[in-house]
Amino acid sequence: MKFSPPLEQGTLLRRYKRFLADIKTADGHELTIHCPNTGAMTGCAEPSDTVWYSTSDNPKRKYAHTWEFTQTQSGATICVNTGRANQLVGEALHKGAISSLASYQTIRAEQKYGEGSRIDFLLSDASDGAPDAYIEVKSVTLNEAGQGYFPDAVSARGQKHLTELATVRSQGYRAILIYAVLHSEIQNVAPAVHIDGRYAALFEDAKQQGVEVIELFFTLSPHEISNPRTNLKKNT
């Protein structure tokens, strides 16, 4: 995924009201930008961190600029725009970049399933005869010394998705959880039992029932997000 024009740089002053942040631009002006992340953003939003932001040409937007990346004072680069995860996974699926899913001919986004939910992607018409695949995508940015964790706050929604994936698997379909790793220092991902013990327990149950887990790592730059690399977690 390319940024056109490339992202611009500023310095974070403060994040507030969940959806807003004030930054100082490269030319010294203060600017209010949209923060597309409702999570805790632990380690991703410290004052004086570098902010990389995009600019929309939509005249109807109240805030034309969107916070895309944080570059921490220790040098890590993090994509904080949670909407990018689904875009990136969608691109990877359409390009056949995830080998274990490359046989599917039809890829549909936001399909209804479960109890009032929408699956991020539903894959069908596999050339090798594989059953339809239901895919949930989660953005991972919480880092502790190279270990990534999800979620970064208690997530009832995440818990529900794990239960629904396990149900789909019991019906004979493939059920897949993709962790889109959008932090340059994260090397692998684990459920955050120290944050959401219920999610962690449901994660282990889902794996035991055959839900597949894929970690998808990306390279981040102000020009593009690229080079998806997969790590398939084996069920044990």
Rank of each mutant, 00 (worst) to 15 (best):
Q71A: 15
V211Q: 07
T82F: 01
R18T: 14
H161W: 05
P222N: 12
A200E: 08
R15N: 08
T25L: 02
T50W: 08
S103A: 13
W52P: 00
P191R: 07
D120E: 13
A92R: 02
L142I: 03
E136M: 07
A126R: 04
T219E: 15
I119T: 13
E46T: 13
T50Y: 13
V189D: 06
S4F: 11
L177A: 12
R118I: 05
L88K: 00
D27N: 08
V168Q: 04
N227L: 09
E68V: 12
S184N: 14
A153Y: 04
Q171F: 14
S117R: 12
S139Q: 08
L202G: 01
I33C: 08
S48I: 11
K62T: 15
V193L: 12
Q73Y: 02
E46M: 06
A76M: 06
T70M: 07
V168P: 00
L123E: 03
S74L: 09
G83D: 10
Q105V: 03
D205W: 07
P191E: 09
T219G: 07
A175V: 08
E212V: 06
P6I: 10
N58P: 06
E136P: 01
G129L: 14
I186F: 06
F218I: 09
E185V: 05
S74N: 12
A40C: 09
H65Y: 09
D196W: 01
A156S: 15
S127W: 06
S4L: 08
Q9C: 12
G39P: 00
R198V: 10
Y53F: 15
E136D: 10
N37Y: 10
N231P: 01
N81K: 07
A145C: 04
E144R: 14
Y16S: 15
A92N: 01
T77K: 11
Y104S: 02
L232P: 04
P131D: 07
K138F: 12
Q105M: 03
E164P: 03
